[in-house]
Simulated assay, not measured.
Amino acid sequence: MSRTVYVNGEYLPEEEAKISVFDRGFLMADAVYEVTSVLGGKLIDFAGHAERLHRSLALLDMRQPVTDEELLAVHRELVARNGIEDGLVYLQVTRGNPGDRDFAFPDPDKVKAGIVLFTQSKPGLADNPAAKTGMKVISIPDIRWGRRDIKTVQLLYPSIGKMMAKKAGCDDAWFVEDEGVVTEGTSNNAYIVKGGRIVTRQLSEDILHGITRAAILRFAREAQMVVEERAFTVAEAQAADEAFVTSASAFVMPVVEIDGVALGSGAPGPVTRRLREIYLEESRKAAI
C-alpha cells in the first residue's frame, strides 16, 4: 500500500513525491534531519527533536520552513493517514533550491528551505529481539567531519561503518579516535557500565547531542545511578561489566561484544536492562 508523504507543504502518495534536481540537499547533502519514534500511535519526545532541529538549522544558517506547531500537526497527520501504531517519522529540512548548482550558499531570506517527512511502520518496535541477546560491535577509525553535533544527512561513512560491521559478522560499529578513544556509534551514542557507574562521552562538537541520551541520563540520575560524562577507550569498554547504545529508534540497546571480546557474562546486564525498562515506561507516559 502506498504511503502518504509530506513534501514542501503537500500531502502526496509516495510515488508522486518529487524534489528538484537542484535542491542542495540532493546535490550537496546540505540538509539536516530528525527521526521521531512512534509507540502506540503517539510521538516520543517530539519537543526534544524539535529543539535539536532548531539548533542544527541555526548552526548552518538555515530557516525552519514551518512552525513547531505546524510541524507537530504534520507528524500527527502522517501517523494517522498511514496508520502507524509503532514506527518512525523521518523529517528532513534542506537549504532549498536556489535554481542552479553553486558551492556558495544562497541568501536564506531569498530561498525557501525544503521540507520532507515520511513514516516507516515498525510493528513491535519496542520488542526488538536484539534487546534480549545484545549487539556485537567493531571499532573503526573516526574520519567524519568535525561537526558531528549537527545532525546533517552526511551519512555515507556511517553507512560504510555499518557495512563493515556486517561483513565482520557483527551488528554495528563504534567510531574511534586517536589512542582508542570512542566517540559514538554509527547512529547512536555509546556507553559502558563499570562497578555500577554509567560512563558516556561528554557533549561537544565531537558527538551528536542525542535526544534519547539526554532522557536516559536524566532517568539514570533520578534512579540514583552514578553517571560520568567523559571519554573512554575501547580497552576500557572491553573490560567493562556492560555496554549499551541509545538512539531514537533503538531506545536502549545492550552491547555484549566489542572487537571480538565478550563483555561481562556475554549477555545484557542488569543496568542496561533496567534503563531500557525505565525509558520505555517513562517515554510512553509522556508521548503525545
Rank of each mutant, 00 (worst) to 15 (best):
M1I: 15
V93R: 10
D109P: 02
R274C: 05
F219P: 10
G196M: 10
V5P: 07
R144S: 06
H49M: 14
R81F: 06
V193I: 10
V5I: 13
P270K: 08
V227D: 07
T94C: 14
K162M: 14
Q92W: 09
K166Q: 04
A190W: 06
S2A: 14
G161R: 14
L125K: 02
T4H: 03
L203D: 14
A250T: 02
G124K: 07
G260W: 13
T4F: 02
G210F: 03
R55H: 02
G87I: 13
E205W: 03
Q154F: 01
Y191K: 12
S159T: 09
D206F: 06
L12D: 02
I258E: 03
Y279Q: 03
L39V: 06
V35G: 03
N82A: 07
R55F: 04
A240C: 10
T272H: 03
K166V: 01
G25V: 02
G87F: 09
D23E: 15
G87W: 08
R81V: 10
S159D: 02
L72P: 10
G180W: 08
I143F: 10
P13F: 00
P129T: 00
L117G: 09
A130P: 00
E222T: 04
A168S: 13
K110H: 06
T152V: 00
L43P: 09
D109Y: 06
